[in-house]
């Protein structure tokens, strides 16, 4: 069966083996670096080393019992949650507005909204730093949340816009005709139908903020140092497998988020 084509034009699996091989290599290249970290995190050694020697949970313990690491984790979680809560409604409002309005500049506005994805983050970081120095919000949670929101909005806009594209906006007219105000029509008819893309956008917003390090290097510090920033400086100063343990936990978190995304889309 492997070698017998069903039609003249069909390419058999055998003739496609090279393609599968390439695909496997590409996948391995993408995933393996991530998974190198996990064995290292269970290492017994005092230094980051691969392959790991011995087995212990001491680095997980070290992470969970360290006040500095815990504080940084709380800062990151707080900032990520607040960023999600801010970026998601703003992103929804922006994409909905662009979707229903027929303003001639809507394309320009879309590009402006998405530009943080294109602009090198380091440039954004420098700009934000100088602005924040003037505003006096360097090393504060609100400052971090605002900066991360700028980064997260494009993800919400992209996912929600694609959701709206598949949605028949006549339904909203129908709802209004049946007695719903614009807001009620949006809330009861449009919103439930683009929920999948909103959840996706929200998760992206969360991960964007939680994983962000470049801007955090500029504007987070002291009491409000984020987890990623502390990891980054930690990596530079001391080569400590605690970072491998944290990374492993972050990988698990990302996988969980991805699963939520897949499952919530399947329900639709």
């Amino acid at each position: 069966m492997l070698n017998r084509p069903a039609s003249d034009t069909q390419i058999t699996h055998a003739r496609r083996l090279w393609l599968y091989a390439v695909a496997v290599l590409v996948m391995a290249f993408l995933i393996l670096p991530t998974f190198v970290v996990i064995p290292m995190s269970f290492s017994d050694s005092r230094f980051l080393r691969f392959p790991p020697q011995g087995f212990s949970l001491r680095w997980y313990e070290s992470y969970l019992t360290s006040p500095e690491w815990m504080q940084a984790t709380w800062v990151s979680l707080k900032v990520a949650v607040l960023t999600t809560l801010l970026a998601t409604p703003l992103g929804i409002a922006a994409s909905y507005g662009l979707h229903v309005s027929r303003v001639p500049f809507s394309r320009v506005l879309t590009i402006a909204l998405i530009s943080p994805l294109i602009i090198p983050i380091i440039i954004l970081g420098v700009g934000i730093f100088y602005l924040y120095v003037r505003l006096g919000v360097v090393n504060t949670i609100p400052g971090l949340v605002m900066a991360h929101t700028i980064l997260a909005i494009p993800f919400v806009v992209v996912t929600v816009s694609s959701g709206l594209q598949q949605y028949d906006s006549n339904q909203e007219l129908a709802a209004r005709n049946l007695g719903a105000s614009r807001w009620t029509a949006f809330r009861t008819i449009t919103l439930p139908q683009i929920r999948g893309s909103i959840v996706a956008g929200g998760l992206f917003a969360f991960i964007t903020s939680f994983d962000e390090v470049v801007i955090a290097l500029f504007i987070s510090g002291g009491q409000n140092t984020t987890l990623t920033r502390r990891m980054f400086t930690g990596l530079r100063d001391e080569i400590d497998p605690t970072i491998a343990a944290i990374s492993s936990l972050l990988i698990v978190l990302s996988v969980i988020m991805l699963l939520i995304l897949v499952l919530s889309n399947r329900q639709k």
């Binding site: 209004r176 005709n177 049946l178 007695g179 029509a185």
Partner: peptide, 8 residues
């Protein structure tokens, strides 16, 4: 407004 017209 449309939602106050009571038109089907």
């Amino acid at each position: 407004p449309p939602h106050k017209r009571d038109f089907g």
